[in-house]
Every structure is written in structure tokens, then in C-alpha cells.
Amino acid sequence: MKIFSWKIISLFVITLSLGWTTEMGSGYNIQKPNTTFVLPDILHEISGLTDIDQRTIACIQDENGIIFIYDIVLNKIKKQYNFHLDGDYEGITKVGTTMYVLRSDGVLFEFLNYESPNFKLKTYQTGIPAHNNEGLCYDADSNILLIANKGKSVKGKEFKDKRAIYGFDLKTKKLTTSPVYEFDINVIKKHVADKKIKVPTKLKKGENPEPFIKLMTSAIAIHPMSKKLYVLSAADHLFFVFNRNGSIHHIEPLSTTVFNKAEGITFLENGDMLITNEGQQKKPTFLRFNYKPTGVKK
């Protein structure tokens, strides 16, 4: 498994910004979901989801240690599995017959044979350096779980604008010593400015307005076909797609009308993208976007 430093990623992104590659979009009309429905009140704080099959997902909410099995055709909860005490649970992903749940402090819960009445639960203290983690997904090609930091992962002013995604090796059950992905917000801002992507701006005294981007990751997922990394930043209302080497493929603002607070993302086998919104002062929602693959221009 290759580990990319932020310096290398920065070089790739700068190269992209200079126009050596043309980004072709996300494969979805992110502003117009093909299916939208309101989730039940018990999922008001929905914070993560993962696909099980073409009509079933598993999801969690960030207050209770419960896995909800949800039928997205009938729009109802099918089953519930209580796995732990109340806590701040932020991510869930399925690997075979095992469910993994991420708590914000970096603790991983391994829910073996989750459908069995004799299921086993294991807990792993990952030792991830960040105190606030929200993104979790499975990278099948590397057999690791990707864990995304919501803010900076390491103390120090020099890390203020860095965002990391670590790997949890499912063979060794250990965290990678270095991030698998690490992004520089200043490089992302330059890309946004060069591509004239419309995002909120911040005006510093005596300077020109610059893009206002925090990249506080709320959910991540690997696309089943392209293998690109999809990232949501609910705080920014931004949608990112990164290539396997960490370079930027696509950035797009999210409609505040459609996306109240995008906290979960996953994909079905056919490529359809599913996103869930936490309720806050509104209702929690489920959104489905049909996959429309695009060509790649050089």
C-alpha cells in the first residue's frame, strides 16, 4: 500500500490546477437527487451509512450504540442491533459479514457476524492522533479501513491547514504510521480559484477575497467502479472527489436547500450514490443519485 505525503499530493494538485488534466465531474447531478425521502425521527442525528445490497443499508446515529438496518425501497427500519452504550458514533462500513463503527475519538467497534444471534463485538483503540474523526469507509483494494479526521490531526500551527485520512489495516489491526491521504487546504483554495468554482469567500484587510474552505470531513466513501475517493464537508457545504493518488478530480458546492447537513455517503454496486442528511432544525433525509459515468478527457 502506498502512502502519499501532503507535499506529493500538493504537487499533483498544482499540476492539475495548471490545466494538465481536465476534471470531468462526479458522475452525478449532485443538485438534483433522483429519490428523496424523510427518515424517521429516531434517525434525526443520522451520522453514517453503508450499503448492504441494492435495497438495504445499515446506518447509525451519533447518540446511541445502535445499528439500524433500513429498507430504502419501503422507507422503513427492518431491524436494530444494540452493540454498545450511548456515545458519539460517526461512521459505519461493512466488510463481508462484519460491521465496523467509528466513534469520534477514534475507537473502532468490530461487529462480527452482525446478523447472528451469537455475534461478537471487539473494540480497537486505534491511537489515531486526531481527537475528532467522522469519516469511515472500506478500501477493498488495500484491505484497510479509511478513517478521516474532521480537523487537523496534529497539534501545531503548521498543521492548521492540513487534513488527514489514516488507514486501519484489517490484517494487522493496526493504524498506518502515516496518513494514506493528506490534503493541504491552501492548495485546494488555489484549485478552486483557478477553476472559478463558486464557494463562499473571505475578505482579509488589504487583500483580495479568497475562497473560504475549512474541509471538515463529515463522510467518505470509495466509488465501486472508478475507485475514486468521495468526501463530504458538511460545514462547508462542499463535495469533493479525489483520485487514488490524492489529486483533485472534482469540487462542487452543495445546495443548502437539498443538503441540510450531509453526514453520510455510500454507493450501491451499480454506482448509485446515497447521501443522508442530519435533521438539525429540519427533518433527516435520504437522497439517492443515479450514476451517470462520464468519459475522461486528456
Rank of each mutant, 00 (worst) to 15 (best):
I3S: 01
I8N: 14
I8D: 11
L18G: 05
T21H: 07
G25H: 12
G25W: 13
S26D: 04
S26L: 00
K32T: 15
P33F: 10
T36F: 08
F37W: 11
V38Q: 07
V38F: 09
P40F: 08
D41R: 14
I42R: 09
H44D: 02
T50C: 15
I52D: 07
I52Y: 10
D53S: 04
R55P: 07
T56M: 09
Q61G: 11
N64R: 15
N64Q: 15
I66H: 04
F68Q: 00
L74T: 01
N75I: 10
I77H: 02
K79C: 03
K79P: 02
Q80Y: 07
H84I: 06
K94M: 10
G96P: 05
V101Q: 04
R103H: 09
F109R: 02
L112T: 07
E115F: 04
N118T: 08
L121Q: 06
K122M: 06
K122H: 08
Y124I: 08
I128S: 12
N132Y: 12
E134G: 15
E134Q: 08
E134H: 05
E134T: 09
L146W: 07
K152G: 11
K157F: 14
F159W: 14
R163Q: 08
L170Q: 01
L170F: 09
T176C: 00
S178V: 13
V180P: 04
D184S: 15
I188V: 05
I188P: 00
K189P: 02
K189S: 07
K190Y: 08
D194K: 09
K198L: 13
V199G: 00
E207N: 05
E210I: 03
I213G: 01
L215E: 12
A221P: 01
H223C: 00
K227L: 11
K227C: 06
K227R: 12
L232V: 06
A235T: 06
H237M: 12
G246N: 07
S247I: 00
S247E: 02
H249P: 01
H250I: 03
H250D: 04
F259Q: 00
N260H: 13
K261Y: 08
E263H: 10
I265Q: 05
I265E: 12
L268Q: 09
N270V: 11
N270Y: 06
G279K: 14
Q280L: 13
Q280G: 10
T285Q: 14
F286D: 05
Y291I: 13
K292F: 15
